[in-house]
Structures are given as structure tokens and as C-alpha cells.
């Protein structure tokens, strides 16, 4: 394998990982606040449909991305209304949100099937972007990639260092104690759910604006579920989510290349390897530090303030 091909493979790995990083990061923050939102897949695919629609109508990738974010947040607000305000079971509401989102995206995106637009523009730094090997990888990505890494860094800082992040973690750990201290359990949880929705919507918009770039029904192809699993196996730690997503993206791209090279293994088995590799890798990671797991103790529990 020559260096050019190797660089190409690395580039596609990053591209394949980014939607997972963004969606999983949003779910991670949501779960750290104690809310389990199984609707990631639904929010993601509506984000993909509306993101493409917005970009097509306006001609701007940025407007499209913002439309995707807004779509994710609207669905998340619906989820928050059900589970946080009305105290509905989170698992049921999340599953319903995914089913609803998949259906809604088909409806909203019906008029855009088969349309194609330019992919999101890539960074061009004279000199730097043309460096051999690392140039394109580090200095020539599209804006989503940089936004994703910035988001991870901000979220990691927010959770570990900021006062508001401390309150959010406390609420996810024990909402009764947090309430007894006077923290606004439902307010913080609602904001966390909205953040999760925004991220899922952005991840969806990335798929239809930069990854492919066109809209096709069902194009998320279970990435929302992978993002959910990544959060658990990453022990609710932001940088581990990146690691898990790269592992998954890497396995996806490599098995494609392996299939192209026709190694003689059944294609179905090859297609399953990214899932197996990601689960294995993260299980090994989470086994290593069981005591250090930041699993939110109040995850999935409905909070009803005593009055």
C-alpha cells in the first residue's frame, strides 16, 4: 500500500467517524445528566433530511447545518416535554422518537430524493494543506470535522472543570440529593436533552451535506444506535467516544477495502466486523477501569419533585 492510498484511507476513516463522534457526544452529555434518550437515530435522520432541504433551498451548507441542528433540537424538546415535564418512561419515549423520526424524515425528504449538491467545502491553507501525508488529514478537512473536535474538547472541559458541568454530573448521579441542594434538576436535564438533540441533528446534517452529499431515506443506517452504544462502552468519557468512533470508522473503511480485495470471506461477516471490533475494543477499555466508570447512577430514572 503506497503512502497516497494510506492517506486516503485515513481521510475516509475520519469522515466515517465524525457523525458518530458528534451524535455520541450529545448523547453522552444527555446521559451524564441522567436522561437516556434512545431517539438518537430518529433525531439524526430528521437532521439529515432537513439539513439537506435547508442547504438546497438556501444554497448554503452552513444554513443547512443549522437547519439540521434545529430539527434535532425540536425533536429533543418533544422528548424532553414527555420525559422530563410529563415524567413518561424514557425508554418508551426514546424508541417512539426514533420510529417517529424515521417516518417524518421520509415525508420531509420525499421531494429531495435523487438531488445532488456540492459537498461541504474543505479547509485550504496555502502550504500547510499540501504537506505530504498529513496536509489533507490535519489541515484539509471540512468544517464539520473541526467543529466535532472543538465540541469534544469543550464538552470535556465543561464536564470536568466547569461549575455548571459539576451540577450536571451531580444531577445525573443522584437527582434527589441535587434537588435537596436546590439545583434545578428538570431545567438542567431539559438543556442537556436539547444539547443532545442539537448534536444528533448536526451529525445527521453531516451525513447529507458532507459525507455523501445527498439525501436518501434511511441513510443514517443505524449510526444513531452505534452512537448510543459508544457512549456506554466509552464509560461516559468524551475523549473515549472519539477513540471508539475512530475504531468503528476505521473498521468500516478497512473492511470495505478488504471486500474490494476479495479475501474470500463472506461479505456479511466483513460488514459485521466494525460492530464486533468496536464492541470488543471498548469492552476491553471499560474492563480495565471498572472503578473509574462515570456511569450516571440516576440514568433513565424519572424525577418527580416532591411537593
Amino acid at each position: 500500500m503506497n503512502a497516497q492510498l494510506f492517506e486516503l484511507v485515513l481521510l475516509t476513516i475520519v469522515t466515517a467517524s465524525i457523525p458518530l463522534v458528534i451524535a455520541a457526544l450529545g448523547e453522552l452529555v444527555t446521559e451524564r445528566a441522567g436522561v437516556l434518550n434512545l431517539g438518537v437515530e430518529g433525531m439524526m435522520i430528521v437532521g439529515a433530511a432537513l439539513g439537506f432541504a435547508g442547504a438546497w433551498a438556501s444554497g448554503s451548507t452552513l444554513v443547512g447545518a443549522l437547519c439540521g441542528v434545529a430539527a434535532g433540537m425540536i425533536l429533543a424538546a418533544l422528548f424532553g416535554l414527555l420525559t422530563i415535564v410529563l415524567a413518561v418512561n424514557q425508554v418508551a419515549a426514546g424508541l417512539a422518537l426514533t420510529i417517529f423520526g424515521v417516518g417524518l424524515s421520509g415525508l420531509l425528504g420525499a421531494g429531495f430524493v435523487g438531488l445532488k449538491r456540492e459537498g461541504a467545502p474543505h479547509l485550504q491553507l496555502p502550504g500547510l494543506s499540501d504537506l505530504p501525508f498529513v496536509g489533507k488529514l490535519v489541515f484539509g478537512e471540512d468544517a464539520f470535522v473541526y467543529a466535532a473536535f472543538l465540541l469534544v474538547a469543550l464538552a470535556a472541559y465543561f464536564l470536568a472543570r466547569s461549575r455548571a458541568g459539576l451540577a450536571l454530573r451531580a444531577i445525573g448521579d443522584n437527582h434527589d440529593s441535587a434537588h435537596a441542594l436546590g439545583l434545578s434538576v428538570r431545567g438542567v436535564r431539559f438543556l442537556a436533552v436539547l444539547f443532545g438533540g442539537a448534536c444528533a441533528g448536526l451529525a445527521g446534517a453531516y451525513l447529507s451535506l458532507a459525507y455523501t452529499p445527498f439525501w436518501a431515506p434511511g441513510m443514517t443506517a443505524g449510526r444513531g444506535w452505534i452512537a448510543l452504544a459508544l457512549v456506554v462502552f466509552a464509560s461516559w468519557k468524551p475523549w473515549r467516544v472519539v477513540l471508539g468512533a475512530l475504531l468503528f470508522g476505521g473498521a468500516t473503511v478497512l473492511q470495505l477495502h478488504a471486500q474490494a480485495a476479495s479475501l474470500g470471506l463472506p461479505g456479511q461477516l466483513m460488514s459485521a466486523t466494525p460492530y464486533l471490533a468496536t464492541i470488543l475494543g471498548l469492552v476491553v477499555l471499560s474492563l480495565g477501569a471498572r472503578r473509574n466508570s462515570a456511569a450516571p447512577a440516576a440514568l433513565g430514572q424519572v424525577f418527580v419533585p416532591p411537593r
Binding site: 443522584n174 441535587a178 456511569a295
Partner: peptide, 8 residues
């Protein structure tokens, strides 16, 4: 009943 957070 302690109003403490186990993981903090």
C-alpha cells in the same frame, strides 16, 4: 440520608 453524590 446523605445528600451526597457517590461518583463525585
Amino acid at each position: 440520608h446523605f445528600s451526597l453524590f457517590e461518583n463525585l
